[in-house]
Design a protein around this nucleic acid. Sequence first.
DNA 1: CTGTATCCGCTGCGATACTG
DNA 2: CAGTATCGCAGCGGATACAG
Lengths: 126, 126
Amino acid sequence: MPDTPRALAKEPGACRAREILDRVGDKWSLQVIARLGERPYRFSELRRGIEGISQRMLTVTLRGLERDGIVSRTVTPVTPPRVDYALTPLGLTLLTAVNSLVSWAEVHLDEIDASRADFDRRTAAL
Amino acid sequence: MPDTPRALAKEPGACRAREILDRVGDKWSLQVIARLGERPYRFSELRRGIEGISQRMLTVTLRGLERDGIVSRTVTPVTPPRVDYALTPLGLTLLTAVNSLVSWAEVHLDEIDASRADFDRRTAAL
DNA sequence: CTGTATCCGCTGCGATACTG
DNA sequence: CAGTATCGCAGCGGATACAG
């Protein structure tokens, strides 16, 4: 295995919400989920469709999502080998939840950019 | 400033959704937002309320959220100094979006745990 | 009380090379 | 085509010490 998928520090009572964000909040998971929300993809298709992702990180990301039952992995033993990835039913429900966050981002991006510019201007004046 | 808040690599057409996840997906932002969703808090109250956060990271996290216009910072110049943090209206709308993700996590945590256990058992059998 | 400055270890992740 | 193995570094974030 290239890397350990994730080191989850099982905090007792602490907010379990972190775990889901660890899953969805890393660098690539969201984009992978979004892609697979459209339709199933093969490995290379996915790689080409996601700008800038390395082979390694696509593998690691897919493994993590597969482990959590969010994507399914279907191997067709032909030559050359063919592997298809798709969202599971669980993955679909996650897609919905994630989309509300994405929508939020799209709606408020200008507002955030403005706020940042403001803040930076104010703190630059020291 | 202890650290630069975040290095945002302004990718041209690429998914802007990453930016919001960079904001909300880091180690502490979510918990801070959740807390402030209940009521305004003072710095030390927040620190005590969030298990395991260091002073440094609370400061860094709050600065980032303030910069994005998600939390407000109100200084009362008394001795000892008093600083109150609260969600802005923008922050409140984010809280709503984030909550749908948190709900999802709560609902599906068992399912995910089971899937992980399954996966780990299968891959352990090599 | 509310920060800020510095040091530093750990891990995410890209680059590269190799296998079935 | 679809991975896996290894190396290397940048940056997140913890510990600690200081300051207004």
